[in-house]
């Protein structure tokens, strides 16, 4: 229950956007940092349900008509399957790499939607802004994942590390 409620903080953090965690004005992908440990520990089905829940909320607080839900469902499915098949994932590098990969995929789906819905942008497909956002967000999310995801995994497993 605590973990589910912690997910409700994601939209608040998205709106607050802590400045000290931004890299050249771009913050981490908070939903990826929350969904990764949840998917690894709670399994595919619970992860997909959570992805739809929080995807709906996050879509509602952002402008435009791009959606995050398909990317979140795909990530929940992938990470959920990974968590069940392999031994418990808790190494810092693995968590960071999975978060980096997930943020790249997440950003790519948004990039494709934004470019397809704004025809004039396709004239310059590799727009410096989109590449910059994709790389920056994935890097900062990858760096934060070992700390935040490891903490959330510990909470999920019932360890008291604090």
């Amino acid at each position: 229950m605590f973990f589910i409620l912690s997910g409700l903080l994601i939209p608040v953090i998205e709106l607050c956007e802590p400045q000290f965690l931004k890299l050249i004005g771009i913050g981490p992908c908070w939903i990826v940092l929350w969904l990764l440990p949840w998917s690894l520990e709670a399994g595919t089905l619970n992860a997909i349900v959570a992805a739809i829940f929080y995807g709906l909320i996050l879509d509602s607080i952002h402008i435009g008509n791009v959606t995050q839900i398909p990317a979140l469902i795909a990530l929940a499915f992938f990470w959920g399957s990974l968590g069940r098949r392999s031994s418990p994932i808790q190494r810092s590098f693995t968590l960071g790499f999975l978060a980096w990969l997930g943020t790249c995929f997440f950003g790519l789906t948004l990039w494709i939607q934004i470019f397809l819905k704004n025809g004039y942008l396709t004239e310059n497909l590799f727009n410096e802004w989109a590449v910059g956002v994709l790389l920056t967000q994935s890097i900062i999310t990858g760096f934060l994942a070992p700390m935040i995801c490891a903490l959330l995994i510990s909470i999920l497993r019932g360890r008291h590390i604090l």
Binding site: P11, V12, L15, I52, F53, L56, I57, D59, S60, I61
Partner: peptide, 19 residues
């Protein structure tokens, strides 16, 4: 789910007002 769809349709009215 119905509640969340309501939130989505209202453009996050509850969340944004609470925030």
């Amino acid at each position: 789910f119905l509640t969340l769809f309501g939130i989505r349709l209202s453009k996050g009215s509850i969340f944004l007002d609470t925030y």
